[in-house]
Amino acid sequence: MKAPRHLFLSLLFIFFSPTPTAAKEIGICYGQVANNLPSPAEVVHLLKTNGISKIRLFNTEPTILQSLSGTGIDLMIGVPNEILPSLDNPDSAAGWLQTNILSIISADQIKYIAVGNEIFLKDQYYTPYLVPALRNLYEVLQTLHLQDKIKLSSPQAASVLSTSFPPSLGAFDSYLLPEMRQLLQFLQETQAPFMANIYPFFTYANNPRYVSLEYALGGSGPPEQDSGLEYNSLFDAAVDAFVAAMEREGFAGIPVTVTETGWPTAGNDAAGLDKAMAYNGNIIRQTVNGVGTPKRPGVGLEVFLFGLFDENQKGGEEYEQHFGIFSVNGVKAYNISFV
């Protein structure tokens, strides 16, 4: 007898729904848009000395991959946006993956390959290439029996949401929906996370009259009420807005990995050492304790802080150069623990 459709959908929801997970180790982004950074070997020493066992790389710089090889540090490795058009078939994807990653570092150290970064809004030229590149790389990983070890996804800016407040009304920009649905379908099929770059700093800096500093930092300010849930953290609200947006499109249960978040120490009135220490400290405690968010309590959230060092060659606003948790000589910019 054919099972009722509603039963099938219920089972599918259970299969893909996140279940409570153990606490996560915090990850850190290792950006390199600077001309004064320590050597890769010095960076590895810094990571190990501070108990940092998970980092995000934005490209496949071979000297950095070589230095990380054999260290036991887990990696998220980025595929630059401009590479995507060349990954137009499984053979080209296999060649690129072998040459730029697998010939340099063991697959055992690779947790994620982040295919592109904020393509849907920042680099729309590459949008048509994203999901085909993901599928071609996935086919290669299947051939190598690595599809369960290495997950593929693509970090998106928080601005892909047209509505993010209150979190329960989270919705993707309708202009992006055709491509977004293709991405979500891929993530659901491959049981990979949705990757989001989330910066409460930007929201607070642009709206200080309407967003309290305590709420932006994730402190103990008066909670915001939404559909029976309480939020005292703009970060939590942003994550749950993504969850609601995915549910709205019929993709409940896809986990969220926050691939960038942080607070600058200088370059803006809203920046500062004390604020960066408070914000990043709150994020670390939430992550390592497996707190989750109001919509997904107890579901450990994976987070990568931005970033290791100030990057003195980044363009844009002055604060873009001041997200470093460490100075280039390896000293912490402020007192913070990663465990």
Rank of each mutant, 00 (worst) to 15 (best):
6 H>D: 09
140 V>M: 05
66 Q>T: 15
67 S>L: 06
245 A>M: 03
207 N>M: 04
206 N>A: 14
112 Y>M: 01
276 A>K: 10
5 R>C: 02
46 L>E: 10
96 W>A: 08
318 E>S: 13
206 N>V: 02
327 S>D: 14
2 K>N: 11
338 F>Y: 15
306 F>D: 01
6 H>Y: 11
165 F>I: 09
210 Y>W: 05
12 L>C: 05
87 L>C: 04
164 S>E: 03
106 S>T: 14
197 N>G: 03
188 Q>S: 11
215 Y>T: 00
274 D>A: 14
330 G>E: 14
3 A>M: 12
234 L>I: 04
337 S>L: 03
257 T>Q: 09
189 E>K: 14
282 N>E: 13
28 I>A: 10
9 L>H: 12
145 H>N: 15
190 T>I: 10
316 G>K: 12
329 N>D: 15
253 G>P: 07
30 Y>V: 04
71 T>Y: 05
336 I>S: 03
220 S>P: 02
39 S>M: 03
232 N>P: 00
209 R>Q: 14
132 P>T: 14
198 I>F: 01
213 L>D: 03
203 T>K: 04
187 L>V: 08
109 Q>N: 13
270 A>G: 15
154 S>G: 08
260 E>C: 07
123 D>K: 13
112 Y>E: 01
250 G>I: 06
208 P>Q: 09
14 I>C: 13
145 H>S: 14
186 F>V: 08
161 L>T: 01
209 R>W: 05
3 A>D: 07
297 P>C: 03
249 E>K: 08
232 N>G: 08
148 D>G: 06
170 G>S: 09
140 V>A: 08
94 A>L: 03
173 D>W: 00
322 H>Y: 15
339 V>P: 06
289 N>F: 05
182 Q>L: 13
316 G>N: 11
11 L>M: 11
285 R>H: 12
169 L>Q: 14
293 T>I: 07
243 V>Y: 09
308 L>E: 04
24 K>H: 13
10 S>T: 12
146 L>W: 08
266 A>Y: 12
